[in-house]
Design a protein around this nucleic acid. Structure first.
Lengths: 226, 226
DNA sequence: AAGCCCCCTTAACAATTTGATAATCTTATA
DNA sequence: TATAAGATTATCAAATTGTTAAGGGGGCTT
């Protein structure tokens, strides 16, 4: 799945639940942060800025409902996905939750597998493809929608990373992108890869395109030009 | 918004739910009619001819499922959008509902915010021109109306899911559809299916068509081209 | 109602592709 | 020319998809 790197904060006061769920979510490639009460949930949310927050309703310090209310009142969490964990028959909480802008509910008990599936579907729901336009430079045409590059109308297919890299560089022809910028944009600020990794991808692009459209600026970075 | 004047009938036996939801839908410019049981739902549907009918499954007099069955059996409601309200874990009802011609289902509890956006998306869905027109690409002709595909005038019959998938991909030849997009479109945003399910359907399409018209873009998705 | 068939989904495993790294050359430039 | 930065290449591990078979359900026929 392309869910890599998504951060999930999960707050529950039962260590067992916390561990099982967080273990399974990690297996699926998510980055999991845990909290054992409402206060900690709020604090960690501010610290890590998770993409999804799962709050148990019944927790010490602050209930999930209170925590949600506080989080939602802050602009930075206005659009964060927040879901509640509730006991099966806890109608009261449901009603309260309704008014707090929770995005969904998960009823306990729930199997780890189902939990993972549900989380997947949450992200699926909000993952909309970014509107991308074609880049046209000389004999080169880059079609983000097709994940394809055409050189003199000859289709050339690049691998995902290669394509992303090319699109990024070509988004501003002539501008030099620092290696750090490239790493942040294409690999993400939290992924750590070696120095040579960029070079190798650059090389593959040059090789596949067959033309020299990526210039090395030694000691600085790369730029795209035709 | 272009939703002005759209009539929504919502049937639920819990007055609170009814009120919250109907209030929020009205805020968004919809015209809301309410019913508190299955019989009333049917009666009001006949009276007002709503554009969308939301039926709670568990209702007195007649369940949402029964009401849906009755409505669907009448020509005037053949094409009306009908969605069910179900409890989160009531998988059985989901399955039955979809087979009765429900267009989707909504799980309770649901925040008013989410409810409104769902309703919006329902209308968005039907306002778009249905792929009623045939798709003609090279030797391939897709006839959505008869659920049939022809390759060099040879009829090929695909199963429902396979057909929907093919139509979706073929609706924009060359464009890559992300796995997430496909899941949302073909399976719905709340249905949970495993990762390999798409692949298997893709494989069957490829197999039945006998030609290579679906390309895999690894790590991204699939696209249709000839 | 029993039997049969088709559709959808999943599990399990195979096959493939991609991405990252190490090791070794090249080259620009101070 | 010495040196650091980048280019190349081969290689391995990880990620992703392909394939096959099996099972559950529903509907249809007998």
């Amino acid at each position: 799945m392309a869910t890599a790197g998504k951060k999930i904060l999960i707050a529950d006061d039962e260590p067992d639940i916390l561990e099982i769920i967080s273990y399974n979510l990690q297996l699926s490639g998510y980055q999991v942060i845990t909290a054992k009460d409402g206060d900690q949930a709020i604090q960690k949310a501010k610290e890590f800025h998770p993409d999804l927050i799962i709050l148990d309703i019944m927790m010490p310090k602050k209930s999930g409902i209170e925590a949600c209310k506080i989080l939602r009142s802050q602009p930075e969490f206005e659009k964060t996905l927040i879901v509640f964990l509730t006991a099966l028959n806890d109608e009261l909480s449901h009603v309260k939750g309704l008014e707090l802008g929770a995005d969904d509910f998960i009823t306990k008990p729930i199997s780890p597998k189902v939990m993972v599936s549900k989380v997947n579907s949450f992200f699926r729901r909000i993952n909309k493809p970014e509107p991308t336009k074609t880049i046209d430079v000389g004999p080169l045409r880059i079609e983000p929608e097709e994940y394809m590059v055409y050189y003199n109308h000859e289709p050339i297919s690049l691998a995902k990373k290669e394509f992303e890299l090319l699109v990024y560089l070509a988004s501003k022809p002539g501008r030099v992108f620092l290696r750090n910028e490239i790493l942040n944009q294409i690999w993400g600020s939290e992924v750590i890869v070696g120095d040579r990794t960029i070079d190798v991808h650059i090389r593959k692009i040059r090789q596949k395109l067959g033309i020299d459209c990526i210039t090395t600026v030694k000691g600085v970075g790369y730029k795209f030009e035709v």
